[in-house]
Design a protein around this nucleic acid. Sequence first.
DNA 1: ATACGACTTGAACCGTGGTTTAAGTCAACA
DNA 2: TGTTGACTTAAACCACGGTTCAAGTCGTAT
Lengths: 122, 122
Amino acid sequence: MKYRSIGEAAAELDIPDSTIRYYEKKGLLPLVERDKAGRRIFSDDQMALLGTVMCLKNTHMPISDIKQYVDWIVEGERTLERRLEMMNRHKQAVLDEIALMTESLKGIDYKIDRYARELGKK
Amino acid sequence: MKYRSIGEAAAELDIPDSTIRYYEKKGLLPLVERDKAGRRIFSDDQMALLGTVMCLKNTHMPISDIKQYVDWIVEGERTLERRLEMMNRHKQAVLDEIALMTESLKGIDYKIDRYARELGKK
DNA sequence: ATACGACTTGAACCGTGGTTTAAGTCAACA
DNA sequence: TGTTGACTTAAACCACGGTTCAAGTCGTAT
C-alpha cells in the first residue's frame, strides 16, 4: 500500500495543501493516518475518498452535504439506501445545472453570431 | 413600450428585488430610468440587458467581468471586437466547466451503480 | 552541528455574491 | 385624511469556500 504526504497528495490532485487540511477540518476526510512525526499520510483508500470528494465538489455539492455523505460512509452499510438516494438527488441537480448552463449558452451564442456578423459586414 | 416596476421585473425573472438593486449598484445595469417618484422603471431594452446579465451569471461569469462587458456595450460599436472575443473566451470556459461536471458525474454514476447493486442483492 | 524544506497548529483574514435592516417617501384607495 | 403597500437609500450583515499567517517541529543532506 502506497502512502503519500499531504504535498504529494495535493500535487496528485492539483490542489493546494491548505485545501486538503481545510477539508479534513470540515470532516470530509475522517480517519486520516499520521506518521511517527505527526504528519498526515494518505493511503490509496484515502485518495479514493478524496477523489470522490473532488467529484462532488466539482459538481457544486455544498461542503455540509459532502460531510453528511462521508459520515454515512463511515457509519457503514446501514446507510447504503440513504447514500443511494443522495447520489440520485445530486445527479438530478447536476443535470439541471448543466441544462441551465446549456440553455444560457444559447444567449451567448446569439451574441457571438450577432457580433461576428456586424464585424464581418464592415 | 412597456415599463415595469422593480417588483414586476424581479417577478418576471424570478429573482429578489434586492438582487436587481445590487446589480445596478455594481454597474451591471447602467441608465435605469426612474419615474417622477424616483422609482426604477424597466423598459424592454433594460429587460433584455437583464436577460443577458442572467445568462452570464447562470454560466458563472464573475460580476466584475459582466461589468466590463456592460461597460463595453455602453461604450458603443467601437468595442464590438472586444465583446466578441470576451464572449468566445467565456463560451470556451463554459464548455470546459460543463465537461468537468460531466466527467465528475461519471464518478457519481459509478457510486449509484454500486449502491444499487449492493442493495439489490440483499 | 546546522541549515533547509516540508510539515504541524489555531486563528485571522479574504473575495464573492448577495440579503437584511432601518428609516423614510410616495401613490392610491377607503 | 389616514392607512396600506411598494418603493427608496446606505450600511450592516451573512454564508461559503477557502487562504494566509505566525510560530513551532521534524527529517535529511551537507
